[in-house]
Structure formats: structure tokens, C-alpha cells
């Protein structure tokens, strides 16, 4: 009888990968966006399995709540929902698929042949306080710079969307 975490991993992995496949294969942009939503949700669940509770939360709140909403806005503003089919020439799918498969094979090869840095995983430790401490001590610089990045993004977005 497999463990519960094993079962959960497979469920969420299949959700993640399955929806990701839909993201890249469907012709409807809206479907893609919704599938991406599900896929990202699956990843958030995987994060939980990896004991990254804070990150799972961030994933749901920021990624799904923020980025996806932005993307869906973008779709709605740039396409009429009724004819959201994308024009593509079918030819480009095949070489792309071959290329990607090749990359995938190489990746898997490297991932499985490399001896990764592995130790016994730390079990059941709360990460939020550690992250909080790190952000205000050794990671204080990235933390501050990130704020500048957001400021720049803000300025840029305003600049682009301002009326003449």
C-alpha cells in the first residue's frame, strides 16, 4: 500500500503536467489561461508536499491571483472572446515538438546521471519564520532591490498605458 504522500504526489503531478499540456496544445487562449490556472495550482500543492508552505501560499496568492488575472485581462483586451482561435501554421508544430523532445531527453539524461547534492531531508519544520528572518538579514539586499524592480515595473506600466 503506497503512502499517502506518494498518492498525493502523483495526483498533483498529473494535474500539473496534464493541464500544462493543455496550456500549450489548445488553440483557444482562454482555455490555455484556465489550464494554466489549474497547473499552477498543482504546483502549489507540490510545494506543500515539499514542505514549502509559505511558498505554496505565495504561489496561490501572487501567481494565480496576480499574474493569471493580468494575463486574462490581456487576453480579453486584445482578442474578441468569441473568436479566440489563434492562427498558426501547423508546420511549425512538428519541428518544435521534435526540438523540445530532444531537449527533454537531454534534460532527463543529465538529471538522472548527475549525482545531486543529497542529504536526509529535514522533516516537518516550519519555514515561514526562517524565511522571514532570512529576508531581513542575509537577504535584505535582494529584498530591497526587489522593491526597486517593482517601482520600475510600475513606472513602465504607467508610461505605456498613459494617454497622450
Amino acid at each position: 500500500m503506497p503512502e499517502l504522500t506518494t498518492i498525493l504526489f502523483y495526483i498533483f503531478a498529473f494535474i500539473t503536467v496534464g493541464f500544462a499540456i493543455i496550456v500549450v496544445s489548445t488553440k483557444n487562449v482562454m482555455y490555455s489561461a484556465v489550464s494554466l490556472f489549474m497547473s499552477l495550482f498543482g504546483i502549489a500543492a507540490l510545494f506543500l508536499l515539499l514542505r514549502a508552505d509559505f511558498l505554496a501560499l505565495t504561489q496561490v496568492m501572487v501567481y494565480i491571483g496576480g499574474i493569471l488575472v493580468l494575463l486574462i485581462f490581456g487576453i480579453m483586451l486584445t482578442t474578441k472572446i468569441t473568436d479566440a482561435e489563434i492562427k498558426t501554421n501547423n508546420l511549425s508544430y512538428i519541428p518544435a515538438a521534435f526540438f523540445t523532445t530532444g531537449i527533454f531527453v537531454i534534460l532527463i539524461f543529465v538529471l538522472y546521471t548527475t549525482k545531486w547534492n543529497q542529504k536526509t531531508p529535514i522533516q516537518n519544520e516550519e519555514t515561514i519564520s526562517q524565511i522571514g528572518k532570512a529576508l531581513l538579514s542575509s537577504y535584505v539586499l535582494p529584498f530591497e532591490i526587489a522593491s526597486i524592480v517593482l517601482l520600475v515595473a510600475l513606472v513602465g506600466a504607467i508610461m505605456f498605458s498613459r494617454k497622450k
Binding site: 503536467v17 500544462a20 500549450v24 501567481y63 523540445t100
Partner: peptide, 25 residues
């Protein structure tokens, strides 16, 4: 798998938003 799918989306898709979704993957 996610990486490869994202790469696939970037190469094969033409719509800017679709490519962005690939990058998110």
C-alpha cells in the same frame, strides 16, 4: 516536463500572451 512544455510553447506559439504563458511554465 514543465520546462520542455514551456519551451515548446515559446517556439511554436505565435500569440504573445501564449508565449508569456510558456515562460510562466
Amino acid at each position: 516536463i514543465l520546462f520542455s512544455l514551456g519551451l515548446y510553447a515559446m517556439i511554436s506559439r505565435k500569440n504573445a500572451i501564449m508565449i508569456l504563458m510558456g515562460i510562466e511554465l
